[in-house]
């Protein structure tokens, strides 16, 4: 390594560590699939695949006929396409419930709890929010996959 290259290398390394790349990935979702967007997005925001690990998505797509109290079943071809998309872009953090099964609710993951620990309890119960599943109540650009703070507006 030349005299100049060494500090440059260190700088690059620092820059690399400094950029909140992992964080940015979660705040701005780029992975997209038309079937996922249309079908999952019919009843709620199409939740980003990175918010649950592959095991959770597998369990979910296997039990769509009993999906959080509703029948959300799809035909086999669409189920397979969406599952492939979800697992290919799944998160890497483990998300396992107390019963040892893969978590199904994003709101029960440690990551979600941590990110939302400053949200006051009354807000979750606000009629305009209705449910923690309603990302777009505060994340104004959730439909477009943007969960950054710039587009964050808490109902007053």
């Amino acid at each position: 390594m030349t005299k100049l290259a060494k500090p440059m290398f260190a700088l690059l390394l620092l820059a690399g560590l400094g950029t909140p790349s992992a964080q940015a990935d979660e705040l701005r979702i780029t992975a997209r699939n038309a079937t996922w967007q249309k079908e999952c997005g019919a009843c709620h925001v199409a939740y980003p695949p990175s918010l649950l690990p592959a095991a959770s998505w597998r369990e979910m797509m296997n039990t769509l006929d009993r999906h959080f109290g509703t029948d959300a079943s799809l035909d086999a071809a669409q189920t397979k396409e969406i599952l492939n998309f979800l697992t290919a872009n799944a998160g890497r953090r483990a998300a396992v419930g107390k019963d040892g099964k893969p978590l199904q609710r994003i709101t029960e993951t440690n990551w979600f709890r941590h990110e939302h620990d400053e949200v006051p309890a009354r807000l979750w119960k606000d009629a305009r929010v209705k449910s923690p599943a309603n990302c777009a109540a505060c994340h104004q650009k959730a439909e477009a996959g943007d969960y950054g703070e710039r587009s964050l507006r808490l109902p007053k």
């Binding site: 019919a42 009843c43 925001v45 959080f68 109290g69 209705k130 309603n134 109540a137």
Partner: peptide, 13 residues
């Protein structure tokens, strides 16, 4: 009034 916009009973969508 199903000629109007609806809301999902759980998610509000």
């Amino acid at each position: 009034r199903p000629g109007q916009i609806g809301r999902h009973a759980v998610t509000g969508k």
